[in-house]
């Protein structure tokens, strides 16, 4: 199943781009060279990019232009990479963030 908009009445057909392979959470996918990682994953039907560090709620793209950091993933070992504005390259190893082993102290008012 592809989510790509191949033809568009005004914008025309998608340019032919080189396909590259990459892995996300150890599963292999294909995407277009240089497109944002988040776009490549969404084209493969993958919406969930990480789970919240404390509460484990699933998260995907929100702003898609680098402001919200919701789409952050680990790319080739580097953490906190925004998948919405990082170009996909051949062989990238992408991992989703999950809950942290030791939750940080809850400083909220109810614990005072």
């Amino acid at each position: 199943m592809t989510q790509r908009i191949v033809d568009h009445p005004i914008l025309g057909s998608i340019e032919e781009k080189e396909q590259v392979s990459f892995t996300f959470n150890e599963k292999e996918y294909y995407g277009m060279n240089g497109e944002p990682i988040a776009a490549a994953l969404l084209a493969n039907g993958v919406r969930t990019l990480r789970h919240h560090e404390e509460k484990a709620t699933p998260r995907g793209i929100y702003c898609n232009i680098g402001h919200c950091f919701e789409c952050r993933v680990t790319v080739d070992g580097k953490q906190g990479v925004r998948s919405c504005l990082t170009p996909l390259q051949e062989g990238m190893v992408i991992e989703s963030g999950g809950t942290l082993p030791t939750p940080v102290k809850d400083w909220s008012a109810k614990n005072e």
Binding site: I5, A43, I65
Partner: peptide
Amino acid sequence: PGVMSVGAAQVMTNVHRVK
């Protein structure tokens, strides 16, 4: 996941050509 700003949907659709 699947909730996004309206601008996010615009960019995904028109710029990256992914629904």
